[in-house]
């Protein structure tokens, strides 16, 4: 019996040790956990890498999983920043223990893509809605070839799923929509499926010649616009959206520094390189107000970066 008791004590002690060791590690090395939107994950990853290269000793980990997953993780306290391609829902805000703050890190021209061999090159919001509600099931009904439409979409934990439903479909999606794991899988599927259609973040349409990005018209009879820099900024492109990051409670100095980097001119350059669009002055102002950066300081940062860029 004594041995058993000893054994259990050892097991208990071991488990206690195992529990405590990583905790002490994390307190020694502050790590920023970022989780959420699959649309933002690549961009934030690049931002984090560049930031870590400039600030040795800082550790940032970025994972995807979907906007809903990220916000749930933020509310549960398992990440410090949640990426989201949709606005936080009032219900989610209610559930939060602390005040949830939001910054906007970039703008997305949510792109509708088809196979390059599809002769359709523009659609109206109304047509898109009909397609995704399952009311139109053949390309010939909207001026294409006679073939049935293969619908590709995202899973319900995706912010893009929510945004597209809210602004385009305005009802439940057709049950025939195949729910893909992420933007990249939609692009991959539409590449191979002549009859395919999908919606993805602008950052995912950059390097693929096998897909076609459609021009979208806000109403029947109006001109259709492609998700380009000008059309997104002037809001002529009807389905552009801000890309958010949410932070809960008091923002730690480390997190604040990284957020400031993201919204700085240098950070916004990365966002643009990744295929998204930079934030406008109004959004910049509200970001700065939240982070407690004065505009003057921001300007000096800008100038400094400009000088650096000239040198290189």
């Amino acid at each position: 019996m004594k041995k058993m008791v000893l054994g259990f004590t050892l097991i208990f002690a071991a488990s206690v040790l195992a529990e405590t060791t990583p905790t002490t590690n994390t307190t020694n090395k502050p790590m920023i956990q970022i989780k959420g939107s699959d649309t933002l994950v690549n961009t934030v990853q690049v931002l984090a890498e560049k930031y870590m290269a400039k600030n040795p000793g800082k550790v940032i980990s970025v994972t995807g999983g979907g906007s809903g997953t990220g916000i749930a993780a933020l509310l549960n306290g398992t990440c410090s920043i949640a990426d989201s391609s949709r606005e936080i829902k009032p219900k989610e805000k209610e559930m939060a223990k602390d005040k949830v703050n939001e910054i906007i890190v970039g703008i997305d021209g949510l792109s509708v893509i088809v196979n390059k061999n599809n002769k359709i090159s523009s659609l109206t919001i109304e047509q898109l809605g009909k397609i995704y509600r399952g009311e139109v099931t053949n390309w010939k009904d909207i001026g294409g070839k006679d073939m049935s439409i293969s619908l590709y979409g995202r899973q319900p934990n995706s912010g893009t799923f929510d945004f597209f439903r809210e602004h385009v479909v305005k009802a439940d999606y057709s049950k025939e929509v195949k729910e893909m794991n992420g933007n990249a899988q939609i692009v991959e599927s539409v590449k191979n499926a002549v009859s395919g259609i999908g919606y993805v973040g602008a950052g995912y349409t950059q390097n693929s010649k096998e897909i076609k990005v459609l021009a979208i018209a806000s109403k029947t009879g109006e001109k259709a616009y492609k998700p380009t820099f000008n059309n997104v900024e002037t809001k002529l492109y009807p389905i552009s959206r801000p890309l958010y990051q949410y932070i809960s409670g008091n923002i730690s100095e480390d997190v604040k520094n990284f957020l400031a980097y993201e919204v700085s001119a240098e950070g916004q350059k990365v966002v643009t390189e990744e295929g998204f669009f930079p934030i406008n002055d109004k959004q910049k102002e509200s970001n700065y107000a939240l982070l407690g950066i004065t505009m003057e300081k921001a300007v000096t940062v800008k100038v400094k970066k400009g000088a650096k860029a000239k040198k290189s």
Binding site: E92, N157, K178, E179
Partner: peptide, 17 residues
Amino acid sequence: SVRTMTSAIAIELGEVA
């Protein structure tokens, strides 16, 4: 295309309130 019980749980449990 099919959606199994396991994939429904895996997809949805991450974000459910």
